[in-house]
Design a protein around this nucleic acid. Structure first.
Lengths: 101, 101
DNA sequence: CATCAATGATACCTATACGTATCTTCAGAC
DNA sequence: GTCTGAAGATACGTATAGGTATCATTGATG
């Protein structure tokens, strides 16, 4: 997976969280202590923020950055999608809402 | 929490994962596509890597970077420490092995 | 129509992550 | 003792994240 894709994935997740919280880019940027153009770059995947910046942005949106052992990722994914789970094989491909603008 | 602390926390986690995998700094650096001095800075918390760099390093160590809703962090923490859990309040302060060198 | 807020986008400057090279320190092995 | 590998540390040049300012576009509202 090219890392630009990873950036887009992270950005899309941030955007979903931001819209769910009813915040503007400017508000999130201020909460995270960065400028709006920079937050925009992060959300659109145009730039790779520093780890500390990403953590600040995530926290501003009620998210926390964590490093998860790969073999536990499916279990965590199940936690993240309450409605999709229940009788899923716990290793489901994860439909990915794909809110790509 | 000052962000230098966050960097130290991440670095300590990477170090634990690296030692558990029996790898040298040089090997992890090469797997992650960065130089040894740079990996060292990340592991010691001396520098804030880019998000993409951190993701590459994490993957080299069998970890995955994820953004978790804060209210789910305790649940995920429980997943991460199977032996510590069981009868813990699920909101335990997490003893933190504190492998700081 | 005009107006305003939110977002997309560009340019320029500074701060810093990153690569490369180099040196030192420490712990084992011999 | 020497030798060797892993890790700590520094310096310098380049690439890029981040700040500030500015303009354009879109959508809603009057």
């Amino acid at each position: 997976m090219p890392e630009t894709t990873s950036l887009h994935t992270i950005g899309a997740q941030l955007r979903r969280a931001r819209l769910a919280a009813g915040l503007t880019q400017e508000q999130v940027a201020e909460l995270a202590g960065i400028s709006r153009p920079r937050y925009r770059d992060i959300e659109t995947g145009a730039a790779a923020a520093r780890a500390t910046t990403l953590m600040n942005v995530a926290r501003a949106l009620g998210l926390e950055m964590m490093l998860i052992p790969q073999f536990l990722v499916p279990a965590v994914d199940t936690l993240l999608s309450p409605e999709a789970g229940e009788d899923a094989p716990a290793f489901a491909p994860q439909p990915e809402p794909d809110d790509e603008r």
